[in-house]
Amino acid sequence: MLKGQKRENMPTDSKVNGIHHRTGAPVVNASTIGEVIAVTSGDGVLRLFQADRDSLAFAIHEGVILSMARESRSWLTGGEDGRFLRVSMEGEVEEIASFGSKWVDCVAADGEHFACSSGKMVYVWSPDRSQPELLEHQSTIGGLAFNTKRKQLAASHYGGVTIWTRRGNRWTKSVLAYKGYHSSVTFSPDGKFVVSTMQENAVHGWRLSDSADFAMSPYPAKINSIAWAGNNPYLVTSGANEVVCWPFKGKDGPMGKYPICVAERKQIVSCVEGFPNVNALLAGFHDGTVVLTEIKHESIPVVLRDAKDVEVTAIAVTETGSDLLIGDAEGEILWFKMQ
């Protein structure tokens, strides 16, 4: 047994097809590798879930696990304790770096490189170097993402998004400027667009070929969760009382097109995730409701979990779509077998 590892015997109760775990700390993130889902919480614990097995819990950070990203067979995590860690699918923990009293706000990986941010600095590790390269920015980093199609790394911050492109063995910089704070960033699956969420209740996008930019707004609330879903693909977003799905097909992406809006309810959407291999998405709401819906006009959502007055903070699905995990702000984790 590794230090901090324990096989969990938490109080659970079985609902229809579901197993409930109560952890006592807000769920922060969930991430899938194959048929295993890793969940991180505000008490520094990472839990591994898999169908028909006991969940495993590993106390890896002191305090909140702020960020998480997947590699091919491991997860990267960043914490309030200033540590940047790698956790294998077996729960083995490797400390990559430690930043003392500064938080590790963001982490990202593309299979070849991996990176984290602490304050204004991004640290990138490459296979041909033993030490990380330091990339400095004008303000604290809100989001980090790799573009696997173009060997690029995006860092979002106040005033826009910086795109770092790997040329030879160094990173060269270009800035996509747009006023306001950009709190997270992601590349489209084809690598042609970069999109950021903003403090100002908006999503902003750029086409990388010519830096043409477009605003996707307004939203009634801040957008804390975005994901790529469906066959278009769509950028699916929280922050409204329905899931707003922006089409990114073709060379113009969503420019000049209307979004598809699904799963309308009275509450604001707090968490979204694509459902693998089908044109559907999962949406969690501020009141705890979770629905599954097709991404098409007038689709009828299926309620997977009823309201319980606690915000949904994480949703993940296994790669085959057989099992589903939901986490909330009060620390409840629901493992759910899809029929």
Binding site: D43, L66, W103, D105, T140
Partner: peptide, 14 residues
């Protein structure tokens, strides 16, 4: 901006 980020992080504590 730093306060928005830090307060949001602190609210996730157990």
């Amino acid at each position: 901006g730093d306060l928005i980020r830090i307060l949001s992080g602190l609210m996730k504590r157990a």
